[in-house]
Every structure is written in C-alpha cells, then in structure tokens.
Amino acid sequence: MRRLTIAEAIREALREEMRKDPNVILIGEDIGIPGGWGGPFTVTQGLAEEFGHERVIDTPISETGIVGMAIGAAIMGLRPVAEVQYCDFLFCAMDQIANQAAKLRYMSGGQIKIPLVLRAPTGATGRGAQHAQSLEGLFINISGLKIVAPSTPYDAKGLLKSSIRDDNPVLFFEHKLLYGSKGARKERGGVELLGEVPEEEYTIPLGVADIKREGKDITIVAKLLMLHRTLEAAEELERDGISVEVIDPRTLVPLDKETIINSVKKTNRILIVDECPKTGGWAAEISAIIVEEAMDYLDAPIKRLCTSDVPIPFSPVLEGYVIPTKDRIIQAVREMLG
C-alpha cells in the first residue's frame, strides 16, 4: 500500500472533501498565496490552484476575525475548515472558540448547527514558549466542542474527513513533529513518519480509540507525538519481556472511555503519557475516569507522565528536559511493575 506523511494525508482529505462538497471552504493565513507556502506546514499546497481563491481564503493576521467568520459561514451551512498557524494562537481567538462556537447552538435552543473545523498545529518544536504548547487537553473543559488529535497519516485522513462532515465545531490538532518531510517542511527532530493510507475512500468515526499495540502487563494511553515515543518504549520493554498495551484515544471529545477501561481491566495498570501540562490536564481527566469506573481493577497506583508545569523553554536541552521521553516512559513502566 502507498505510504503518505500526515501533511499529505490531510491535504488529500481536504482535497477530497472539497471536490465532493462545494460547501467546504478553507480560511487561514498564508494558505493560498501563489508562490507561498500552503500554510505554515505546506498542508494546503496546490488547493488554491485547484479550487480558486473564493474557496481557499487567505486572511489577515486576525485570529478572532478568522474564527468568527468561519462560525458565521458554518451557521449558514458552509463547512469551513479554518486554521491558525500554531495552536498557541487559538488564545487570540478564545472568545470566538469558547463563547461563540461552543455555545451558540446551545443557547439558541438547538436552532442552529456549526459545522466548523479549526485546524491547529500543536506540540513543542524548539521555538520557545509561544509556539510550543500542547493545548488539546485544555479545550476538553469547554462543552460544545469536539477535540480530535490524530497520530498517524491513516487516522489523520479518516478523522479529518469525519470532522468536516460533522455538524459541530471540531478542533483538529496536528502535531508539528509528525507532519513528515516528504512534500512538507522538515521539522528539526521530527519523526520521519510515513504511514499506509489506502487509495480508496474511508472515514474514521469520532469517538473511537485505537489499540495501537496489544499487550497484557500495562496499559499506556498516549496521543500525538507521545504515542510514537510510547510505541518505541513498548518495543524496548518487549525485549525485556514486558508486554505493553498502547491506546491512542484519537479523539479527546468524544472520548472512547470503554476501550481504555476494558484495557485496564485486562492489564490492571495504567500510565498516561501526555505532552500537555500535568496540572488539571487531560491525563488527570483520564485518571479520574479510571478511579471512578475501574478502581477495583488496579494493581498499582495510576501514573501520569506529562510535560512539567512550566512554559516550554527554548534550548533543546531544556525543552527535552520538560517533555516526556522514551527513556522516561520506560523508567515509569519499570517502576510501576516494580
């Protein structure tokens, strides 16, 4: 089967949905400029040429204006895929995301729908504190949003197509180190990630986790870049006879609790590895679910391995220190298995 990068898989999902449905439009900064980049990570390259500038809309650096315009267009039945260049910039549009996109349908008593996708590159890549955050976990606290965080090209394509067809606002987080360099900008320290993506049409429903590796001794839940570090760790641990089950939630809202709980019932141990900060974070939410619903199955305390509660520092030495690594995942597993 052919192998694509995440950037290519996302581009293909956009192209297919735009061909299929004239209501799908793109809104963002630097996404369709002739001779430009196709967005900060080249994802939209070639789309303005195919679909024209009426449907691939370049914007000023106005995140509030971008998200607000996407919301209004979505209410009227278009299916905008808006984007910000780095998810850190979502904070510039926070009112539109949290007070408007998430709530307008509810406070209208269900009169309107907001079929909006907001793409946002996440994760630390050596750029310092304002282009580095992992914010996907933060948004789970805002009812009315769906949160998607794919880790592989196959998942990215199938989930993006479902997100575009979904009638709700979806925040779609893409990890900058997973885009790959084939036809895309190479990120220093990026995972050279190519994945099998079938030629034929497929979608992946939101709210279904994927067991990326089966195992019996311990469950690790991880997403985005941390999923890949976890899989590397699991490979090494296997050589020492430790069998790790790795679950990729793929969507944070809706969350496939059942797959995680069932895994814990089998392995009796759970480690959550997360690039989001630890305090009040997504890993804490997973922990709480396990305590509420599967506490009796645990043979060891739950452990969270998260990014330290600090802004992301610049120097690679410092950045590497605060974000979970393969070695620290291995160490955490060994400690838990005593």
Binding site: I71, G72, A74, M76, Q100
Partner: peptide
C-alpha cells in the same frame, strides 16, 4: 463578538 460572525454569514451569501 457578533461582528466577525456577521462577516461569516455575509461570506456565505457572497459565495
């Protein structure tokens, strides 16, 4: 906050 949203409504009409 309604002003940017009005733009989106207008965008749909325009397209």
């Amino acid at each position: 906050s309604g002003i940017p949203i009005a733009n989106g409504v207008a965008l749909a009409f325009k397209l």
